[in-house]
């Protein structure tokens, strides 16, 4: 198990195919119960996000005035909130918003972080110094505080949240990638490629990148779970997303005032946040174990 996926090159110096890597990773994730549960939860939530409109019985903001504050029943599985909206439909349809926002934000942060990390680690010098000091100053601020500061500056919308996720998580990814690059850079095959006259882009993406990928995949999964949490937290704090969005954090905030009367309107979105974050974390932990501690740390 700890041997993990051999990350870079086989005996002939040829990297295994992406599909082969993925299927190997999947197989090993499902060989441990805990990782299997995490992966299944994540996949289930992703399916809910994709197929949400087919599953949800009502529109996300449809107000059923005569059915406000109803407890869970066959008609309304998760009950209705204070304004008569079906909580089940809102939780289901909220999955798309929060996962797309967190997923897209993580993806962009990973791309930006990887580019900065590769260049910074490989080139070194003044570029490395300037980039890392800027990132250090961003990392010095807690993520939520930085997010609130940025949202106060760029205004409140879904796009602002996306920008915030990229700015908050790019430095973290870049630091991780850079550390791997620094370890790989002195190795013989990189020198060989350079002496062989390969371009910098080719060296970065064909020679170094395969060594970065295992660590990057663990980091991406972790960032994804943090991003979900951050999007929900911003919703709870009432910034970033606007009512009547079915953002789970915002739903918890709205339900908080009448929690003792309509507890189900608070419980289900809060449970959704917990389950998906735990699921993604378990999956990330599984990926880390499969790849091997020496790669992931």
């Amino acid at each position: 198990m700890t041997a993990g996926l051999k990350p870079t090159h086989n005996a002939l110096g040829v990297a295994p195919s992406w599909w082969r890597r993925l299927s190997l990773l999947g197989g090993r994730l499902y060989s441990r119960p805990v990782s299997a549960i995490g992966t299944t939860i994540t996949i289930l939530f992703l399916l809910v996000a994709i197929c949400g409109p087919l599953i949800a019985p009502y529109e996300e903001n449809e107000i059923l005035a005569s059915e406000a504050r109803q407890p869970p029943s066959a008609e309304h599985w998760f009950g209705t909130d204070n304004l008569g909206r079906d909580v089940f439909s809102r939780v289901i349809l909220g999955a798309r918003e929060i996962l797309v926002l967190a997923g897209l934000g993580t993806l962009l942060a990973v791309i930006c972080g990887t580019l900065f990390g590769l260049l910074s680690g490989y080139r070194g010098g003044w570029f490395d110094e300037i980039t890392m000091r800027i990132f250090d100053s961003l990392l010095a601020l807690p993520a939520l505080l930085l997010a609130l500061l940025l949202l106060g500056t760029v205004g409140q919308s879904k796009y602002s949240v996306l920008i915030v996720l990229v700015i908050v998580y790019t430095p973290i990814v870049a630091r991780v990638v850079r550390s791997v690059v620094l370890a790989v850079k002195p190795q013989g095959f990189v020198d060989a490629a350079r002496l062989g006259g390969e371009t910098q882009t080719r060296i970065l993406f064909r020679e170094i990148m395969p060594s970065v990928l295992p660590t990057l995949s663990v980091e991406s999964a972790l960032r994804f779970s943090y991003a979900i949490f951050l999007v929900a937290s911003l919703g709870f704090l009432g910034v970033g997303v606007q009512p009547p969005s079915p953002n789970w954090g915002l739903m918890v905030k709205e339900a908080r005032t009448f929690a003792s009367l309509v507890p189900w309107a608070l419980f289900f979105p809060a449970a959704a946040i917990s389950i998906v974050v735990i699921g993604v974390n378990l999956m990330a932990d599984g990926v880390k174990r499969v790849i091997g501690p020496e790669q992931a740390d």
Binding site: E62, I63, L83, G238, Q242, P243, P244, E254
Partner: peptide
């Protein structure tokens, strides 16, 4: 503003007006 019953009023108005083709983005 985010105080009192105003956000709830905005959400209900958004739903009611949508039926008449008045589409509202609520800014709290």
């Amino acid at each position: 503003p985010d105080t009192g019953n105003r956000p709830n009023l905005a959400v209900v108005l958004k739903d009611q007006w949508a039926e008449a083709g008045i589409n509202v983005d609520v800014i709290v």
